[in-house]
């Protein structure tokens, strides 16, 4: 989504949500009904909101993809006891981010494993060198002679 769409949507959404909130507040505290549009299964009705603020149906998607928009609506939804905007798309987005990260981690892990293997090899080589050096020192201490390499 280009940057220009978000401010346009927000400029329409924010006043709308403010009005919705006022309507909510105007009700008696112990007997309030949701003023935010919701579906039969208790979720936020994004279509009705889009219509209400004069957006095209094709612009509904931004409510699912953009956390800046979804979070505004969901803040009110939470207060009014309505299920938040369809998490699947957001979750998909999150999954994609996570999946990319896992890929990257896996690749880094591979690199690390390779580096680790090399280091282990170095350690074994150093161990062998230590054994050799200790043997040479022991030879000097026991015989008074050196080994000429």
């Amino acid at each position: 989504m280009s940057k220009s769409i978000l401010p346009e949507i927000l400029s329409k959404l924010e006043p709308y949500l403010e009005e919705i909130d006022k309507q909510w507040e105007a009700q008696p505290e112990d007997n309030r009904r949701p003023t935010l549009p919701f579906t039969g299964d208790g979720k936020v009705n994004v279509r009705d909101i889009t219509k209400a603020i004069g957006l095209r149906q094709s612009q509904e998607q931004h409510f699912f993809k953009k956390p800046e928009i979804a979070s505004l609506v969901n803040a009110l939804a939470k207060i009014q006891g309505i299920k938040p905007i369809g998490s699947r798309a957001v979750a998909d987005q999150i999954d994609k981010v996570v999946s990319n990260k896992l890929s990257k981690v896996s690749s880094e892990k591979n690199d690390l494993a390779r580096a680790l293997a090399e280091k282990d090899g170095e350690i074994e080589a150093l161990r062998a060198e230590v054994v050799s050096l200790k043997a040479k020192i022991e030879f000097i201490e026991n015989t008074g002679l050196m080994i000429r390499e």
Binding site: L112, A113, L116, A117, E118, D120, G121, E124, R127
Partner: peptide, 26 residues
């Protein structure tokens, strides 16, 4: 080739595999 050997010896545990590969080669 310690890295390749490690993957064969213990494919799911790279740290252990790496260590075992170095023992094998040594």
């Amino acid at each position: 080739n310690l890295h390749e050997l490690a993957k064969v010896i213990e494919p799911d545990r790279p740290i252990l595999g790496s260590r075992l590969a170095s023992y094998v080669v040594f």
